[in-house]
Design a protein around this nucleic acid. Structure first.
Lengths: 132, 132, 132, 132
DNA sequence: GTGGTCTAGACCACT
DNA sequence: GTGGTCTAGACCACC
């Protein structure tokens, strides 16, 4: 795998969201987007752990959960790879649904802050540009 | 105290975000928006606990943290109220900044899902309308 | 009673020590020192409450406890007075023993702060002079 | 972690001062005295709880407060340690100031007991010797 | 009535 | 093993 784990994943160690959960969700998104295709090898636990300064057990736990969910398969002695039967490369509409919960949360916060839609949307567009 | 606690707060019990943290953040947003003004009485710990089906200690912990942060003040035997020196009713621009972290997270997820900005923004607008 | 309650008592509202307890202890000390003699009338609940900006119920509770302990007696319609059988005007040695707990606490704190006796004692002497 | 928690801390269960507050204040004093240095590991919550016969949550609350105040830092899964930026090993003069409130309280009580300075000071010196 | 403190015990996240 | 969160329930201090 020439992908550098540090480029693939972005971890917020300060967040209350457990690190292993952040990893699991990100792998699912990358697979859903087709950025990882069935048969692709995953970076090794050790590699990810070092790149993100995490405990290897934490990465291992994330991989195990992804295996249980059928997203990854374990190739003995060779590491993990994206499972053949992983539902990959979904349509944009399907992928957009995975974004819903976070957008709904943003909308809830915007309502409590009494911000009108225009302000919120233009701020969001600006942030999307910054990241591009 | 005619505020119905259940209407003020919305708790996601399934979230990894601790309940007391959700309460703290929501109170801060409501105060920032001016929906709660200095001197306003907060619903009692027991009232909120019952309305949201929480343990009173969980609510109490949130109130204590808000007191330490200077958002609420305790009136012995009378309950909590919004602190006089709480920075309330901020400008829309200031309030929008409180929304940044969540929008940044949404943008990160969108990028990993390889969704183009138009798709994401229109989905967001739709969700904002649903909630209105 | 010409004694101004505000001069007799000093209350630390911020302390974790309950206000009624502070009042009880102070009355006991004043009686032990003979500053209040049997038959002396106490300032009224209302007077103390107003002078110290306390809730009258709090003062009333302190007086009730002192009555139960036999330090004060209730004269119907006339207020409270120091009980005839209150053990007053004790010797300096007896009174000093009432000071022990607080001094022991100070000594414990000094030890944890690794302060040598000379430093502590000279600071204490200085504070005693300030208050004189 | 060879520190015996029971030797480090001394708790007055009868006091009106909440236990968690007593713990917080004692840790601050030990750090101020340099008895605990940045990087030193704290005894675990469970260890302290058992040694002092307290509920772990009570100890945990004290540790959390110390973390919020920047005295301790949490190392996920490894326990708490004295924060690097904790202001440690202060001068004797600075440490003596931390003792002021308690000495002022003692002076106030002495005045109400009408004890002269000599009596009070010699009693204090005697107590300091007892503890040595 | 109000909030604060403490206990006992369960489960979770992380190393 | 570590600390964090939550529940259920008790008692206290204050108004």
């Amino acid at each position: 795998m020439t992908n550098h784990a540090a480029r693939l994943f972005s971890i917020a160690t300060g967040s209350s969201e457990p690190i292993y959960r952040q990893l699991v969700d990100q792998v699912k998104r990358l697979v859903a987007a087709g950025q990882m295709a069935p048969g692709d090898g995953m970076p090794s636990v050790r590699e990810v752990a070092q790149a993100l300064a995490l405990n290897p057990m934490t990465v291992s736990k994330a991989y195990s959960l992804l295996e249980m969910e059928g997203v990854l398969t374990r190739r003995r002695g060779l590491g993990m790879e994206v499972a053949a039967r992983a539902s990959t490369a979904q349509s944009a509409q399907e992928r957009a649904q995975l974004l819903r919960p976070t957008l709904e949360r943003a909308a809830m916060e915007a309502r409590q802050l009494e911000l009108d839609s225009d302000t919120v949307v233009s701020l969001f567009i600006q942030i999307l540009k910054e990241q591009a």
